[in-house]
């Protein structure tokens, strides 16, 4: 058991280490192919276990996401009104919400084929767009784009858009609405309530 754990930790470390040097398009492609492969094999995830999908995302996907950046983008100009503690809570709550949404999307679209477009990138670029297309049988292809920027911890995703709709900036006006109605605390309360509600739904689903 201990040996297995050490081996797993070693593997994880190896993936993280190589990810730092990986080109952004290779990174996104590798991660999404790995995840899809697991999703397609995992019976629990296919049966709709959001908890299991979230666990998978935590290990495989989330290390490559920059949630602080995402939250800043979604909160927009109200970000500066938040105290550092509030900012930290906002990042945590928004992270939970995004992870759930993203995991759900992966489950729903697991049987579809993903095609990555060639990346146009200069060596000096620090902000790139990785484009992919999900082909659904009997439906129009759906464009999925990843915005990444180069940090000292490697390339990190800071926005994902599906069919031209950004999962991050799509919250901007509803967040602004929450802040104007109840201040930063109001926004935090709404996010918490939303995340709690989803948890309850997941718990009910498991029976």
């Amino acid at each position: 058991m201990k040996r297995l754990f050490a081996m797993l930790a070693g593997l994880l470390f190896a993936t993280v280490a190589t990810a730092q040097e990986m080109a952004p398009d290779v990174l996104v492609r590798t991660v999404s192919n790995d995840v899809l492969e697991i999703v397609r094999k995992d019976k629990d995830i296919q049966a709709g276990s959001t908890r299991k999908a979230v666990e998978l995302a935590e290990v495989k996907v989330l290390p490559h996401f920059d949630f602080a950046h995402m939250t800043r983008l979604a909160v927009g100009k109200d970000w500066r009104k938040a105290t550092p503690e509030q900012q930290k809570i906002l990042v945590d709550e928004f992270r939970t919400l995004l992870v759930r949404t993203y995991s759900k999307a992966f489950i729903e679209y697991r049987n579809h084929e993903i095609e990555f477009k060639p990346l146009k990138m200069q060596p000096a670029d620090t902000d790139v767009l990785v484009r992919s297309v999900v082909k659904q049988p009997g439906g129009k292809p759906v464009q999925i784009d990843y915005n990444l920027d180069k940090t000292d911890r490697g390339w990190k995703v800071y926005d994902i858009s599906v069919a031209g709709v950004s999962l991050v900036t799509n919250y901007r006006s509803s967040f602004a609405q929450e802040v104007s109605a109840g201040g930063i605390e109001g926004l935090i309360a709404s996010l918490r309530a939303k995340n709690k509600g989803s948890e309850a739904a997941v718990a009910a689903n498991k029976q």
Partner: peptide
Amino acid sequence: KIIEEAALDKYSYVRDAYLQR
């Protein structure tokens, strides 16, 4: 299912998604 999971307020989520799309 994705929208149900994502939206704080479904109306504004759908509106903003439509306008972006």
